[in-house]
Design a protein around this nucleic acid. Sequence first.
DNA 1: TTAACTTTCAAACAGTTGTTTGAATTTGAC
DNA 2: GTCAAATTCAAACAACTGTTTGAAAGTTAA
Lengths: 203, 203
Amino acid sequence: METGKALETSQRILDAAEVLFVEHGFAGTSMRQITSSAGVNIAAVNYYFGSKEGLFQAVFERRAEPFAQLSIGKIDELTTAKNDYSATEVVQAFMAAAMELGRNPENGGLVFVKLLARSYVEPNPVLKEKLPQRYGDLTRKYLAALSHALPHLSSTEINWRFHFMTSAMFNAFAGNNVMRLFMTQPLVNARDPQVVADMLLPF
Amino acid sequence: METGKALETSQRILDAAEVLFVEHGFAGTSMRQITSSAGVNIAAVNYYFGSKEGLFQAVFERRAEPFAQLSIGKIDELTTAKNDYSATEVVQAFMAAAMELGRNPENGGLVFVKLLARSYVEPNPVLKEKLPQRYGDLTRKYLAALSHALPHLSSTEINWRFHFMTSAMFNAFAGNNVMRLFMTQPLVNARDPQVVADMLLPF
DNA sequence: TTAACTTTCAAACAGTTGTTTGAATTTGAC
DNA sequence: GTCAAATTCAAACAACTGTTTGAAAGTTAA
């Protein structure tokens, strides 16, 4: 079935596709862009992944589980260690997971976070199906932890704050800089995840 | 030059294109989708706007100036009225502008806010050029106001907080709901701008 | 009505899209 | 080295892309 060479080829396709999908979106990326960027034949994508959509799914699946496990590990670590954890610590745990992923280039770095940030606005059918089934438990755990840390807030308010927090965080980590859009000079250079975390936490 | 009928046609194209661009992105929307949705001939787009990119630019331009003037009006109103305004009031002014736009359907409602939210992740060349020249002054005014309201923070911190705030706000108003992505049930239904504002402000 | 336009329309343009094909090549186990 | 399976490849597929064309229809003012 899969020899060394096959693995290398499909991996090169995944790497190239991941970057291009994040940069130009699903519709904005062509098969020929992907395969020529990966240095493989045009037919290789259909050979290994069946279709363009199958490739996108594979791109997502490769990163989804490691990130989910990392995040769940962080929140479990916190909630089992003590009972009086603060909301700040919950947010910190969430950011730590994203940062750990970002630091490790062989995990795809922050590219996957960018993909998630993109999925906020792009209603990809694959993501619409896969995201809840991959991150449902994760989200529920963080919501429960937040609710435990902020007992005076209603569950509706908790949901909203989690929504706001993740919006700001993903955009920040993804480097989708408002300044770079609205101003000619960036004012803020957001490449270092540690800097982003330091700035986001007090906020 | 432009008679009543021509205006009606180009307007119908703008309306249809606006919705489709927001939903599927620039690359993900075809001319035939736009024209058939608008009920006009395929050639009408090139007749009125020159090209697909010209159409996108027109879609943006139609909403950009009214929104900018509304936002600038709100912040000027606040900063000239008194000298001891709070950060909360600055944020409130910003949200009020977005809400006023959202309430008025003939201003395009919240569709334009969605377009802005999309521009966070989609590096459209038109937006890359137009956004800073349209919203540079606006952004500088709000940053200055925030800095005045929070004198203990460095300008770097101010920039970051504005970045976080706008990220959360645009995503919230745009209805890009994290819950709808990560969970099977929404938990939060974010259609009413007033509700969003009420939830975002204490955060 | 005439005449100078603006606007609409169906048809076709060349180029790109994702996908398939079948033959060549490479691979790994015997 | 043999042979079957896995992989690569150039070429072609029909469908779709944005755009152009030139004639038809509609509009406006004299």
